[in-house]
Simulated scan of single mutants.
Amino acid sequence: MKILTKITIGLAAATLLLVGCNGANTSTSAQAKKDIIKPTVATNALGLGYVGDTDLLKDDSIPPAVAYHSAAPGTSKKFVRAFQDAPPMIPHDTTGMLPITKNDNQCLACHMPDVAVSMGATPIPVSHFTNFRPKTEVVGDEILKNGKAIKNTSSEQLANVSIKVDKDERHLYPGRYNCSQCHAPQATNELVDQNHFKPVFTAPDGSSKSSWNQSKWLKHIQTDK
């Protein structure tokens, strides 16, 4: 009888223990479900790697074709600059104009200063006719820039810097010859995520014109042609 009683008590204890564990698991599972935070914004609405419902990050995804402005040069509307003194973007068709080579730069036909106004084009600024990297060499104990001896010192007034400017604006500095390294045609595609940047222009006409001019940035610089 005592043995039967002990067995009965043991089974009852085991049953209570089992029920208790199951109850704890059920409670933990329910709490875990409550702790899951559901996303309030769909992934494809974030604009990162998606066009509509197309995941562009997948290997088999085909991004939309890029279409550029097709207006002929001289007939297009200029773009507002992205910020003060930003390189203006190309608003017209560039078919047959790119790539630019050392022997073929069709941009010059319309944008050289002596013809730009009559062509309705943005004239190439004086900075593009300026060599900001003058030839520097050491001869004996002297430092020469463009063949002129300068002191081995620095100055806030840049009095010892020699910069060559083609004041007639007829020959582009070679470092500026490849126009498309800064100026680019703009696609007509809808942006995946819109640009929310709001520029603050420092010049009244800053949205369409550079504020840099020869008198401003060469004020304290000696220019030797």
Rank of each mutant, 00 (worst) to 15 (best):
K167S: 15
I150C: 03
S207W: 07
C179Y: 04
D205Q: 07
S207A: 15
H171Y: 05
Q194M: 05
K151D: 05
E169N: 14
Y177I: 06
K164A: 14
D168N: 14
K151I: 08
I163N: 11
S162H: 13
N213A: 10
W212G: 09
Q186F: 00
S207Y: 04
S207Q: 12
T153G: 06
P174M: 08
Q194W: 00
K209F: 03
S210L: 13
S208Y: 12
D168V: 03
S154V: 09
D205T: 13
N178V: 07
Y173Q: 13
D166S: 10
S155F: 03
R176P: 03
L172P: 09
Q186A: 12
S162I: 14
K209S: 12
S207G: 15
I163R: 02
K151T: 10
P174L: 04
P204C: 04
P199W: 01
Q157V: 05
C179N: 03
D193H: 00
R170N: 15
H183W: 00
S207C: 08
R170F: 05
H196V: 08
S154P: 00
L172H: 07
V165R: 08
T188G: 04
H196D: 06
Q186T: 14
S155Q: 09
K164R: 12
Q157L: 12
Q157W: 00
S180F: 04
N189Y: 02
S211V: 14
V161S: 10
H183F: 01
S162Y: 09
L191H: 04
N195D: 14
A203E: 11
N189T: 07
G175Y: 00
G206N: 07
W212D: 07
Y173M: 07
S155D: 15
N213V: 00
T202E: 02
N160C: 01
K167T: 15
C182A: 09
E190C: 01
Q181F: 01
I163K: 08
K167L: 13
Q194G: 03
P185V: 11
Q194L: 03
V161A: 14
R176Q: 10
P185L: 03
N213R: 11
Q186E: 14
P185A: 04
R170S: 15
A203F: 03
K198P: 01
Y177F: 15
V165P: 06
I163Y: 09
R176C: 13
